[in-house]
């Protein structure tokens, strides 16, 4: 698929922002700055960006507990997200949600979700809304190999097929569901086959290859917009960090992470591809690297300096009226 220069720059920028955002959080969490549980997305950037570059602002999306990458890729404000993760006033959710519950409905982002398998049924509902309104918009549901055995996901997939809802189930198989390898947890070992059996096509791509992901998603989106019903994407990938920050990662083999960073890093892969094809130069990309690092610095500085949410926020927004 031929992308324009601007589109390529943008794609790289988005992936780089996600990477630096997560890497910086890893450091700040290590210093004790961030409350609660944080699940980092480093290593999976091409999945989020490859998918979201096919979407418009009012296409809908639901994400998981590992949602920072999806939020950024969908267009959520980076500084607002950082403040939210720090639990400060001015966060994207006013400090009420935190890392696992970041949302921005204006960007079509219906929330990261702390319940594994909580997202897919929501996406089916959002898709029905778009179908009824005749907007041609789709709803994307991100999930991992962890959620693929959850009853809610099966129900959502079946319901989507029955109602021909324009949902796209994106399955990022990063091989570990917390501490358990998917080869143990998925009885048949065949995620793609099971998903196909529900009655929808599954488009496969290497999750570390932005271009492959982009192309696969394009097919699914075209299907959805044309009213042909749901699809799935199957994206094998790796995560560089543990399930959650603080995870000792005893389940990994020796040097596994080192090898992952060397062989499965989407950023150098993208750089190599575009520079070899003379689509972009190293200078173009270096410039973006610098800008992104500065952006993340600013975001962290602002989040650190931001005030805590005022006490009254404890009681607000439970109901619309009571």
């Amino acid at each position: 698929m031929q992308l324009s220069r601007d589109e390529l720059l943008r794609a790289y920028r988005q992936m780089k922002i996600i990477r630096e955002f997560e890497e910086r959080l890893h450091i700040e969490i290590g210093r004790g700055e961030i409350p609660g549980f944080t699940h980092l997305y480093s290593g999976q950037e091409a999945c989020a960006v490859g998918v979201c570059e096919n979407l418009e602002i009012d296409d809908k999306m639901v994400s998981t507990h590992r949602g920072h990458g999806h939020c950024i890729a969908k267009g959520c404000d980076v500084k607002g997200m950082m403040k939210e993760i720090y639990g400060k006033d001015g966060g994207l959710c006013n400090g009420k949600g935190g890392s696992m519950h970041i949302a921005d409905l204006d960007q079509g982002m219906l929330g990261a979700n702390g319940i594994v398998g909580g997202g897919p049924p929501l996406a089916v509902g959002a898709a029905i809304a778009e179908r009824n309104r005749g907007t041609g918009r789709v709803a994307v549901s991100f999930g991992g190999d962890g959620s693929i055995n959850q009853g809610t996901v099966f129900e959502a997939m079946n319901l989507a097929v029955v109602l021909k809802a324009p949902v796209i189930f994106v399955i990022e198989n990063n091989h570990y569901s917390e501490h358990t390898h998917y080869s143990y947890a998925v009885g048949s070992g065949d995620i793609v086959g099971r998903t196909k059996a529900f009655g929808m096509p599954v488009f496969e791509a290497d999750g570390s290859d932005f271009f492959a992901v982009y192309d696969a998603m394009k097919e699914a989106v075209d299907r959805g917009r044309a009213g042909e019903g749901p699809s799935a994407l199957y994206l094998p990938i790796v995560r560089f960090y543990g399930h959650v920050e603080g995870d000792p990662q005893n389940y990994r083999g020796p040097d596994e992470t080192k090898k992952n960073r060397e062989t499965m890093d989407c950023l150098p892969k993208f750089r190599q591809r575009v520079t070899e094809a003379a689509l972009l130069t190293n200078e173009d990309l270096d410039k973006i690297d610098e800008e992104v690092l500065a952006l993340i610095d600013e975001a962290v500085a602002e989040a650190s300096a931001a005030p805590l949410p005022p006490m009254e926020m404890l009681y607000t927004d439970v109901y619309n009226e009571y």
Partner: peptide
Amino acid sequence: QRVIDTPISESAIVGAAAGAALAGL
């Protein structure tokens, strides 16, 4: 489109209701 029979999938039914509500229905 507005009166939707579903298979027996309570969590998908209610989950879809929640998602549709978030999306404006």
